[in-house]
Simulated scan of single mutants.
Amino acid sequence: MAASFRDKLLEELRAEAATVSWETPPARRLARHLVTAAGLAAAVAAAVAVPLMSDAPAFAVVKNPDGTVTVRINEFVRPKDLEKRLREEGVPAVIDYVPYGQTCRQPRGRNVPQPDRMPLRPAEDSRDFSIDPKDFGPDDTLVVQMHSANGDLTKSNGGSVSVIRGPVAPCELVPAEFSGAERE
């Protein structure tokens, strides 16, 4: 049976916690280290409990055994942290969360046509999507631009996904143009 997203996230947190050194410090620093260790233990316990509760981290990125990467975005905050995490898993990415009613000035670079596939694929859970790092050429970058629904950071009200070959221009905010059907 395949591991669930929660199991994969828990495994990733355990691996991160395993990198902490538990060597005994000199006596004069012991009290400070005990406080630090207690804080770390509380943080790990809270992080492990997070997937089991309704409050979830802003995002989660999990590397799958087949090399794909599963992503869940729970809150549209900290896009640069998500970018960094995706790059760690082999997905070159630029993530921009823009205010409702605005968009990034186009073009941001040379778009790579995607006739047969989308760079993001729906995953088992409808809140997740997967990315295959093998879908990207050496100079390709996944560019994701999303905006929240009228300022609700937990809901998306649209955006765009593209792959750009070569340099990606920074997001320069401009007013978005909405058709009547897209407006909330």
Rank of each mutant, 00 (worst) to 15 (best):
residue 10 L to M: 05
residue 157 N to W: 10
residue 101 G to D: 06
residue 15 A to N: 09
residue 114 Q to P: 07
residue 170 P to D: 14
residue 49 A to L: 15
residue 22 W to G: 13
residue 20 V to I: 09
residue 169 A to I: 05
residue 43 A to K: 08
residue 59 F to N: 06
residue 120 L to Q: 12
residue 152 D to W: 03
residue 119 P to R: 09
residue 153 L to W: 11
residue 1 M to W: 11
residue 22 W to K: 04
residue 97 Y to G: 09
residue 48 V to Y: 02
residue 76 F to N: 05
residue 47 A to F: 07
residue 51 P to R: 11
residue 103 T to I: 08
residue 141 T to N: 03
residue 19 T to G: 14
residue 180 G to Y: 14
residue 30 L to E: 11
residue 163 V to A: 00
residue 126 S to Y: 08
residue 123 A to R: 00
residue 128 D to Q: 12
residue 89 E to T: 11
residue 132 D to V: 04
residue 45 A to K: 08
residue 80 K to L: 00
residue 184 E to F: 14
residue 2 A to P: 10
residue 77 V to P: 06
residue 31 A to E: 12
residue 95 I to P: 00
residue 120 L to C: 08
residue 147 H to L: 00
residue 144 V to P: 01
residue 16 E to M: 02
residue 162 S to R: 08
residue 123 A to L: 06
residue 110 R to D: 00
residue 71 V to D: 00
residue 83 E to F: 03
residue 91 V to P: 10
residue 170 P to K: 12
residue 38 A to T: 07
residue 71 V to Y: 01
residue 13 L to K: 09
residue 111 N to I: 06
residue 119 P to E: 01
residue 124 E to G: 14
residue 86 L to W: 10
residue 45 A to M: 07
residue 164 I to D: 01
residue 8 K to D: 14
residue 103 T to V: 12
residue 2 A to D: 04
residue 71 V to P: 01
residue 134 K to F: 06
residue 101 G to H: 07
residue 141 T to Y: 05
residue 129 F to D: 01
residue 84 K to G: 07
residue 65 P to G: 09
residue 135 D to I: 04
residue 162 S to E: 07
residue 174 V to H: 10
residue 27 A to R: 10
residue 120 L to Y: 07
residue 72 R to Y: 08
residue 24 T to R: 08
residue 123 A to F: 05
residue 38 A to S: 12
residue 93 A to R: 08
residue 44 V to S: 02
residue 134 K to H: 11
residue 102 Q to N: 07
residue 182 E to F: 01
residue 71 V to H: 00
residue 152 D to S: 04
residue 17 A to P: 03
residue 164 I to Q: 03
residue 9 L to S: 09
residue 16 E to V: 03
residue 138 P to G: 02
residue 15 A to Y: 03
residue 97 Y to H: 10
residue 138 P to V: 02
residue 65 P to D: 15
residue 51 P to M: 04
residue 72 R to V: 15
residue 49 A to M: 12
residue 170 P to F: 05
residue 13 L to N: 03
residue 64 N to W: 02
residue 27 A to D: 13
residue 5 F to G: 11
residue 127 R to V: 09
residue 30 L to Y: 07
residue 96 D to C: 06
residue 163 V to Y: 02
residue 81 D to M: 04
residue 119 P to S: 10
residue 38 A to R: 08
residue 18 A to L: 01
residue 47 A to G: 09
residue 17 A to G: 04
residue 74 N to P: 06
residue 119 P to D: 03
residue 8 K to A: 10
residue 39 G to Y: 14
residue 48 V to D: 05
residue 136 F to H: 06
residue 113 P to C: 11
residue 3 A to V: 00
residue 4 S to H: 01
residue 81 D to C: 01
residue 172 E to H: 14
residue 79 P to R: 04
residue 180 G to L: 12
residue 143 V to I: 07
residue 130 S to Q: 13
residue 83 E to V: 05
residue 101 G to S: 06
residue 160 S to M: 13
residue 51 P to W: 04
residue 37 A to N: 11
residue 169 A to D: 05
residue 34 L to K: 13
residue 3 A to G: 02
residue 29 R to T: 15
residue 48 V to M: 07
residue 43 A to H: 09
residue 110 R to A: 01
residue 178 F to C: 09
residue 57 P to G: 08
residue 155 K to A: 12
residue 150 N to V: 07
